[in-house]
Computed example of a mutant assay.
Amino acid sequence: MDTSAYIASGILELYVFGLLTEDENREVHAFAVQHPEIDAEILDIEKAVINLSYAVSPQLSAANYERIREKLIEKHGNDTIPLHPKPNKTAQYLGWAAAVVFMFGFGYQYIKYNEATKEVQSASAQRTKFEQLLAQSEKSNKAKDQALAVLRSTDNTIIKLEGQEASPKAYAEVYMNKTNGEIYVDVAGLPEAPEGKVYQVWALKLDPLTPTSIGIINDKDENGSIFKMDSYNGPQAFGITLEPAGGSKSPTLEQLYTLGKV
């Protein structure tokens, strides 16, 4: 058997990288047992792959890389590592080793890229959540400032609405500005509206009884308890009823929760 030609064929590199069939692997192993030079060549290939792997590893310093490179140069007896394969030298499999090392290095960089991408996405999600909380806080503060302005205004006439048969313990207050005609209602004394229901505020003329809707109470918890209603000239009373979502054209008297005269 011409062992030099066998070594130069490249089959040993394929053997080291696990690219042969089972039958071919058994054949190479058998030849390595019979021919020490083939066995030595396999060991050289494996050592070179390990050395190159460590040489490009991100954990190694430049000094370690240079020491490994010098050892390879010393082994080949040249000032530079051969770039072209020679039939009887380990340089013939440097290309294979470099390809494998590149594959592992690329995989490492890909993992790091994915980790960095996830960190950016997580930071973006946290920022979005923070912006939402900030917006909610600003909205809540605005509602509180508005409520304080309404309560403190000396131009307001305060109409107290007492609980009715549908909810005797309920109560509310209407703030009617005598200067600009704005109307606000404080519904802190109303129970939570059942799902699918809303409170509707009515301005009333009493003789004859003529109700006019001036607004629907939505998102009581989110907006606080004071709501701005539509303006209405000359109301004689105010009432609040519980209505289906979206409101009603006329009040459901059986669901009259509060009522108060101006």
Rank of each mutant, 00 (worst) to 15 (best):
Ala97Gln: 03
Ala97His: 08
Ala98Asn: 00
Val100Gln: 12
Phe102Arg: 12
Met103Trp: 13
Phe104Cys: 02
Phe104Glu: 14
Gly105Gln: 14
Gly105Glu: 14
Phe106Arg: 02
Phe106Glu: 10
Phe106Pro: 08
Tyr108Met: 04
Gln109Val: 05
Gln109Leu: 10
Gln109Asp: 13
Gln109Cys: 00
Tyr110Arg: 03
Tyr110His: 10
Tyr110Ile: 05
Ile111Gln: 14
Lys112Phe: 04
Lys112Ala: 01
Tyr113Trp: 10
Thr117Gln: 15
Thr117Trp: 13
Lys118Cys: 01
Glu119Val: 05
Glu119Ser: 11
Glu119Thr: 08
Val120Met: 13
Gln121Trp: 13
Gln121Ser: 11
Ser122Trp: 09
Ala123Gln: 02
Ala123Ile: 04
Ser124Ile: 01
Ser124Thr: 10
Ala125Gly: 04
Gln126Phe: 09
Gln126Lys: 14
Arg127Ala: 05
Thr128Trp: 02
Thr128Lys: 07
Lys129Ile: 01
Lys129Gly: 06
Lys129Ser: 09
Lys129Arg: 11
Phe130Leu: 14
Glu131Asn: 11
Glu131Ile: 03
Gln132Asn: 14
Gln132Cys: 05
Gln132Gly: 12
Leu133Asp: 12
Leu134Thr: 12
Ala135Pro: 07
Ala135Ile: 03
Ala135Cys: 10
Ser137Cys: 05
Ser137Ala: 15
Ser137Gly: 14
Glu138Gln: 15
Glu138Val: 09
Glu138Met: 13
Glu138Leu: 12
Ser140Met: 10
Ser140His: 11
Asn141Gln: 09
Asn141Val: 08
Lys142Asp: 01
Lys142Gln: 05
Ala143Arg: 11
Lys144Phe: 14
Asp145Gln: 15
Asp145Ala: 15
Asp145Arg: 15
Gln146Leu: 13
Gln146Cys: 09
Ala147Arg: 07
Leu148Gln: 15
Leu148Met: 13
Leu148Asp: 07
Leu148Glu: 13
Ala149Gly: 07
Ala149His: 06
Ala149Tyr: 00
Val150Ile: 13
Arg152Ser: 13
Arg152Asp: 09
Arg152Tyr: 11
Arg152Gly: 05
Arg152Cys: 12
Ser153Arg: 06
Ser153Trp: 07
Asp155Glu: 10
Asp155Thr: 05
Asn156Gln: 00
Ile158Glu: 03
Ile158Arg: 12
Ile158Gly: 07
Ile158Pro: 04
Ile158Ala: 00
Ile159Val: 08
Ile159Thr: 03
Lys160Pro: 04
Leu161Lys: 06
Glu162Lys: 08
Gly163Gln: 06
Gln164Pro: 00
Glu165His: 11
Ala166Trp: 00
Pro168Tyr: 09
Ala170Cys: 07
Ala170Trp: 00
Ala170Asn: 07
Tyr171Met: 08
Tyr171His: 05
Tyr171Lys: 10
Ala172Gln: 03
Ala172Lys: 08
Val174Trp: 09
Tyr175Trp: 03
Tyr175Ile: 02
Asn177Ile: 01
Lys178Val: 03
Thr179Cys: 05
Thr179Ile: 06
Thr179Tyr: 15
Asn180Val: 04
Gly181Val: 02
